[in-house]
Nucleic acid binder design. Structure first.
Length: 256
DNA sequence: ATGGCCAGCATCGCTGGA
């Protein structure tokens, strides 16, 4: 099974990119973030035509998550229980007869002195508490999405420049570390990877061509799924296209 | 040295992203 995550930065604009990428990469399950579409406008029919069923949770202008899959999506659940939030950032579903998929769009945080940053840390604490409860219930669990956190210096093109900034501040990295302490494994780091492996590049400054990026999109695997993971890669092809999303998809292959 | 892009919503400028 191939499972992927991709922040598309507007599914309305990126639907042709997504359709092309689905044909090229042949994933079985894809988690999408920043769809920026109300549910009434979600392109479920277009995706159905190319072989994918959809579950989605969107809102106007901001946020929005979706899970698309070749097979059935069961037990679809919205949000983080016990964390009241109008922002559409979390969607869960069971695929492939028993793999629990948690699609997450972690708040950006804007800057470390902002209310949005405090919201990000509160959100991450609630997310951690919830996953701690979910893991014993689902031995095969994968939490994937745009985490808006670069976990380590090697995940940042210029760690000195980014030190203390939002996306790479110590409290955020500690919050990410606590997710790993639950037993989740960073799928990408299960394997040797090229240096300067990133998933997001600023639209400005020719950042993509200059390899000035961050690795902030992640696939976190429960121990049972980590054992079955045979590869995890970042696909740079969509980011190199005209009018790309600023994020690249990350894809994990699971032997099941 | 600075800031440089993009999407959406609603104009002819703003918010938010990361």
């Amino acid at each position: 099974m191939k499972i992927a995550t991709w922040n598309v930065n507007s599914l309305k604009v990126r639907l042709p990119h997504l359709a092309d990428w689905l044909r090229a990469a042949q994933p079985d399950v894809v988690c999408l973030q920043e769809t920026k579409l109300e549910d009434a406008n979600f392109p479920a029919d277009a995706l159905e035509e190319i072989g994918y069923r959809s579950a989605f949770s969107g809102q106007k202008t901001y946020n929005g998550v979706a899970i698309i899959a070749r097979g059935a999506l069961a037990h679809v659940a919205h949000g983080i229980p016990e964390f009241a939030d109008d922002q559409k950032r979390v969607l869960s579903a069971t695929v492939d007869g028993g793999t629990r998929v948690v699609c997450a769009y972690v708040p950006n945080g804007q800057s470390i002195d902002s209310d949005k940053y405090r919201y990000k840390l509160r959100w991450l604490a609630a997310f951690e508490r919830w996953l701690a409860a979910e893991l014993p219930r689902h031995s095969r669990l994968v939490a994937l999405g745009d985490f808006n956190i670069a976990p380590e210096p090697r995940d940042v093109h210029d760690p000195a420049l980014w030190e203390g900034q939002v996306l790479f501040s110590e409290p955020e990295r500690e919050a990410f570390g606590r997710l790993l302490e639950l037993g989740l494994k960073d799928g990408f780091r299960l394997f040797p990877q090229p240096e300067k492996s990133f998933t997001w590049w600023d639209y400005r400054m020719n950042a993509f061509k200059r390899k000035m990026g961050l690795r902030i999109d992640h696939i976190l695997l429960s121990p049972a799924l980590a054992e079955r993971c045979t590869a995890c890669t970042i696909d740079l092809a969509p980011r190199a296209r005209e009018r790309p999303s600023d994020h690249a998809p990350v894809i994990a292959e699971l032997d099941m």
